[in-house]
């Protein structure tokens, strides 16, 4: 997403895009299954981050979806030939530049396409460091995959016209307040800090409630959402800490620098959770006590995040 704006002349870092888009979040919905496992996410959906970003910075975004593949391919080529890079949504399974073991039927993947050469498209994918290429057939299949949650329907998006980069102070303030509100105040126990506590309670009970095998599958899934999905590591906590660091400069508040440090420590704690969880998955730990310990780390993360966002709210 930062790529999308940078190619149009806006110099915004990825942490800024994530922060102003209000990306940081936590959600666990046991009854909404993705690939047979409960939905867990450490951030908001990319399209919602984008919507918030566009709103807060006053960028008119254009979204296009297509009924049929041919129209979708034609429109993408048209934009690329006009030199306009576009954001796309697609299904990871069909993108063969992904390593085999990372290809799952998952519709919600977002990336940027900025050109085409012969039969290949040039992409910037947030998962990878360098430019990747992709065949026309791969791309068309990924964009028009059907079935499963969030079908992409060929979605492409791009800034319609880019005004001058506005002063960031107000957008940053608004975004931080909104993230604090969402982490602390939403009256549904599945979201924000309450969501982390809710999941911690469930994790502790998994081995006795759903059996060791399922418990392991669920645990591995949470850690994958934390470390495998997206950028930065530790469930986007490091990315947001980087945002707070930049925000400290923009708002002229050194205290945000300290909070960034606290959030880094929280991210490190989430990484400890992942390390212990991986040992459990490998069968290196005694099952019952290990899940108790995992729940304990999560509760600690929840308490620290609650403290952090309460402090953060009082500062902006």
């Amino acid at each position: 997403m930062a790529t999308l704006l940078r190619t149009r002349g806006w110099d915004l870092s990825e942490p800024m895009v994530f922060g102003i888009g209000g990306g940081l979040f936590f959600i666990h919905i046991p009854f909404l299954k993705v690939g047979g496992l409960p939905l867990t996410a450490y951030r908001d959906a990319p399209r919602i981050i984008l919507k918030n970003l566009a709103k807060r910075l006053g960028v008119p975004m254009r979204y296009e979806r297509f009924r049929n593949t041919a129209d979708g391919v034609r429109r993408l080529d048209e934009l690329l030939d006009a030199g306009i890079p576009v954001g796309l949504q697609g299904n990871i399974y069909w993108l063969s530049y992904f390593p085999a073991d990372m290809r799952f039927q998952y519709n919600g993947h977002n990336f940027v396409c900025y050109g085409r050469r012969d039969d290949h498209y040039l992409l910037s994918d947030p998962v990878f460091e360098t430019v990747v290429t992709c065949s026309a057939d791969d791309l068309a299949r990924a964009r028009f995959a059907r079935g499963g949650p969030f079908p992409p329907k060929g979605l492409i998006y791009y800034p319609d016209a880019l005004p001058r980069l506005p002063d960031l102070e107000q957008p940053v303030r608004m975004a931080v307040r909104d993230t604090c509100r969402r982490m602390l105040d939403v009256p549904i126990p599945l979201l924000g800090v309450r969501g982390i506590r809710y999941l911690a309670r469930r994790v502790g009970k998994w081995p006795s409630r759903i059996g060791e095998k399922h418990a392991r599958a669920n645990l591995a899934n949470i850690i994958r959402m934390q470390e495998e999905i997206g950028t930065g590591g530790a469930g986007f906590r490091f990315l947001y800490a980087a945002f707070l660091q930049e925000a400290a400069g923009i708002l002229g508040k050194d205290s945000l620098q300290d909070l960034s440090g606290q959030l880094t420590a929280i991210g490190d704690r989430w990484r400890e959770f992942a390390v212990l969880g991986a040992q459990v998955c490998r069968g290196r730990e005694n099952i019952e006590p290990a899940y108790g310990k995992l729940a304990e780390i999560m509760n600690d993360c929840a308490a620290r995040e609650q403290h952090l966002f309460t402090a953060l709210r009082s500062m902006v």
């Binding site: 073991d101 994958r224 950028t231 490091f238």
Partner: peptide, 27 residues
């Protein structure tokens, strides 16, 4: 893949990572 981590000066930077054993195990 890109990881965000603290550089020597205490500022965040992007560090490319070849991977982590933990992610391999859960994957």
């Amino acid at each position: 893949r890109a990881c965000y981590a603290l550089g020597e000066d205490g500022r965040y930077t992007v560090v490319p990572s070849t991977g982590w054993e933990v992610e391999k195990i859960v994957n």
